[in-house]
Computed example of a mutant assay.
Amino acid sequence: MGTQTENKGFGQSTCLCSVHLADKSGQQALSIVRRIQDFITENLYICSDKILSGLGKMYSGGGDFTKNIDEYGGEGTAEFVDKAIQIYCEKNEEVE
């Protein structure tokens, strides 16, 4: 039912959920965060690091977002995604 654009974004999120348990170094997760940020910017709105950071906080902040992410990716996935996003944004700050 979804469009090709929707499916591409969904795939990025799926990858990040699966990385939750597999990526001990964090590099794969940070690469996927970058692809998600690029996807949002290319298809929805300009997703600055500040906006991306806010999305991460929203994902782990409780309520439906956290519940749905954890149901899909396993308990703790929302918090993992938020941490990956925050680390990614902090690393970008250090470079600038």
Rank of each mutant, 00 (worst) to 15 (best):
G56A: 07
Q4K: 14
C15M: 12
D70K: 10
T14H: 14
K50F: 06
K8P: 05
A22W: 09
I36G: 12
R34I: 00
I32S: 03
S60W: 01
F65P: 12
Y59I: 13
V33C: 05
Q12M: 14
I69Y: 06
R35C: 07
A84S: 14
S13G: 15
L30K: 10
D23I: 09
E94H: 03
C17E: 08
I36T: 09
R34A: 14
G62H: 09
S13T: 14
Y45S: 08
A84V: 01
L21H: 14
Q12G: 13
E79I: 09
K24P: 00
T3Q: 03
D49V: 08
G9H: 06
E42L: 00
S60H: 07
C47T: 00
V81P: 02
S18R: 11
Q4V: 11
N7Q: 11
V33A: 03
L44H: 07
E93W: 04
T5R: 12
C15W: 08
G56K: 02
S53R: 13
G9S: 06
D82C: 14
Y45C: 01
A22D: 04
G11S: 10
E71I: 01
Y59D: 06
L30N: 09
L55Y: 05
H20T: 14
K57R: 12
G2R: 08
C89A: 13
K50V: 09
S48M: 05
V19M: 11
M1L: 11
E93N: 09
D38Y: 00
C89Q: 01
E90S: 05
K8L: 12
G56C: 04
A84L: 03
L52M: 15
E94L: 09
E90W: 01
G9N: 08
E93V: 04
K67S: 04
I87R: 15
G76Q: 02
E93T: 04
K8F: 13
I69Q: 04
I32P: 06
N92E: 12
K67V: 00
D38T: 13
C17T: 02
Q86R: 10
E6P: 03
I87S: 14
M58F: 14
L21A: 13
E75S: 14
F39Y: 15
G73F: 02
C15K: 12
K24W: 07
A29C: 12
C47S: 05
V81F: 12
L30V: 02
I40E: 07
C47L: 01
C89G: 10
L30M: 07
R35L: 11
G74T: 10
G2F: 11
D49W: 05
E94V: 11
E94Y: 03
V95T: 07
